[in-house]
């Protein structure tokens, strides 16, 4: 599979979950391992551009596909606006939910550069912040939305939006 743009090849057990592959085999411990039951969302990474809960995906299922983790948000020494937003607006307290929150936020802003607070809350509704810092997380994402004009060039819709073969 490709992880953060780099091709990786490993022999693995069929039952190995993607979260453990990333953390234990590749040393990418930015992605956190939380509830194990696809409830908490701290393990969210991208699979082919879509946020997924990596505790509920087998590593083998990602074979041949593209995985992106929180480590890839920073590009060329420059933090992603989402990361800057979380710093500016105190979007993290204990920091445990933060990697998943930021990966979902990044995907949301790629599809919808100017989301409402309600849309942000919906996007992160499958993720739990046990510090209950949701208000500052929403503000952090809004900060990112307001500060990334001109900093990115890929504001077109993600290709997945046309993946369904809808014909009428």
């Amino acid at each position: 599979m490709t992880v953060n743009g780099e091709e990786v090849t490993r022999e693995i057990e069929g039952r190995l979950l993607l979260i453990h592959f990333l953390r234990d085999h590749l040393g990418l411990t930015g992605t956190h391992w939380g509830c194990d039951t696809s409830n908490c969302g701290t393990c969210v990474v991208w699979l082919d551009g879509e946020p997924v809960k990596s505790c509920t995906v087998l590593a083998a299922m990602a074979g041949g596909h593209e995985v992106r983790t929180v480590e890839d948000l920073e590009q060329d020494g420059k933090l992603d606006p989402v990361q800057q937003g979380f710093m500016e607006c105190h979007g993290l307290q204990c920091g445990f939910c933060t990697p998943g929150m930021m990966m979902t936020a990044r995907a949301l802003l790629d599809r919808n550069p100017d989301p409402s607070a309600q849309e942000i809350r919906e996007a992160i509704s499958g993720q739990i912040c046990r510090c209950t810092g949701y208000a500052t997380i929403v503000r952090s994402v809004q900060w990112a939305a307001a500060h990334e004009a001109g900093s990115r060039t890929d504001e077109t819709d993600s290709p997945e939006t046309v993946a369904t073969g809808t014909a009428s």
């Binding site: 696809s38 969302g41 946020p51 809960k53 509704s125 499958g126 993720q127």
Partner: peptide, 9 residues
Amino acid sequence: IADPVVRNR
């Protein structure tokens, strides 16, 4: 049904 991230899969 579940949440948006689960609905992706």
